[in-house]
Write a protein that binds this DNA or RNA. Structure first.
Length: 307
DNA sequence: AAGACGAAAGTGGTTGA
DNA sequence: TCAACAACTTTCGTCTT
């Protein structure tokens, strides 16, 4: 992925000294610390054209693949009546043979449906993973899990897109890759609600264990998007670690905690950002930052921001 | 004028009877 | 299945810089 022409140069400082942090799904500039988030890459010139074209095509006629889906009028059926094309009865001695044909036809169709379903899913998976700039291992793990889910008939009545997104989310969580449900939802056409529902269902059905997501994972991404220095990120991580020890964080959303810690750290090191700025990047509101900030201040003797 | 603060009411999802 | 509940959001008035 990093071999791609468009991604060779840091958009901020022009450096070519980039590394791909597989485990976090991010590309980081070694010189200025800039993190290529999926959003930044999405709006890049080459990608946008590609994306828009694809979107348009889909909007106009549905994806090219949809015609391959079952029940679009392309499936042939052999009906249950033992009549030939003119409507006259078929001789009994041929009926058994017909029955056999019917059976194989049905089996072939089922196998095809399964394969087609899988093909659609894998295509969608591929698209999602590259849109979100996730490492290859995620795609492979997700494909594996999808296959299992499909075999267990867990997809019934759910949009393939939602299930794929749900599984990607699940794999990210397990790999501690800081992507929120919101991030994933933005890269698909399914709603957050749908994906969440599919996620919970799949998680339960496959009895997958998912660790609680850690605020620490979000720090470097937010810090980069806010143009904050590496020092601030480190400071924020310290704050979170300290808070963890005192057990202040339970039950709170990880993004809110990360945002508040960054807010404090930035102010402390003279790179102050407004609550609004931080809130926007973290996808939460100012109120939540204030609440977390207040809690952190009470529990760990943190000085006031204004000085 | 913009940022920070917090109260109050609303939202969507989880949990437990 | 429904009501209580926690976390978070929206909205708004007030105070501070």
């Amino acid at each position: 992925m990093i071999e791609d022409e468009n991604l060779r140069v840091c958009p901020k400082c022009g450096s070519k000294n980039l590394i791909w942090k597989q485990d976090e799904g991010e590309i980081v500039c070694q010189d200025c610390g800039y993190v290529f988030s999926s959003e930044i890459i999405d709006t890049g010139p080459e990608w946008r054209a590609f994306d828009a074209e694809q979107k348009e095509r889909r909007a106009r006629g549905g994806s090219p693949l949809s015609i391959l889906k079952p029940n679009k009028g392309l499936v042939t059926e052999i009906d249950q009546y033992n009549k030939d094309a003119r409507g006259s009865k078929i001789p009994v001695k041929y009926q058994q043979e017909l029955q056999r044909t019917r059976k194989w036809h049905r089996r072939a169709n089922i196998a095809n449906a399964f394969e087609k379903n899988l093909a659609t899913a894998l295509e969608e998976l591929d698209r999602l993973v590259s849109n979100l700039n996730l490492p290859r291992s995620v795609a492979e793990e997700a494909a594996h899990k999808y296959r299992i889910a499909a075999k267990k008939q867990l997809i019934r009545g759910r949009l393939i897109e939602s299930v794929v997104a749900a599984i990607v989310y699940l794999v990210c969580r397990q790999a501690n890759i800081p992507k929120t449900l919101d991030d994933i939802a933005k890269a698909t056409r399914s709603s957050k609600k749908d994906i969440g529902r599919a996620y919970r269902f799949i998680k339960r059905a496959l009895s997958e264990k998912v660790p609680l997501s850690d605020p620490l994972n979000y720090i470097s991404r937010y810090a980069s998007q806010l143009n904050l220095s590496e020092k601030v990120a480190e400071e924020a991580k310290k704050i979170i670690l300290e808070a963890k020890e005192k057990g202040v964080l339970s039950g709170r959303g990880p993004t809110g905690i990360a945002a508040a810690a960054l807010y404090i750290a930035a102010a402390r090191l003279g790179e102050k950002k407004t609550q609004k700025e931080v809130a926007e990047i973290a996808g939460i509101t100012e109120v939540t930052i204030r609440n977390r900030y207040r809690e952190l201040k009470e529990q760990l003797n943190i000085e006031d921001i204004s000085d």
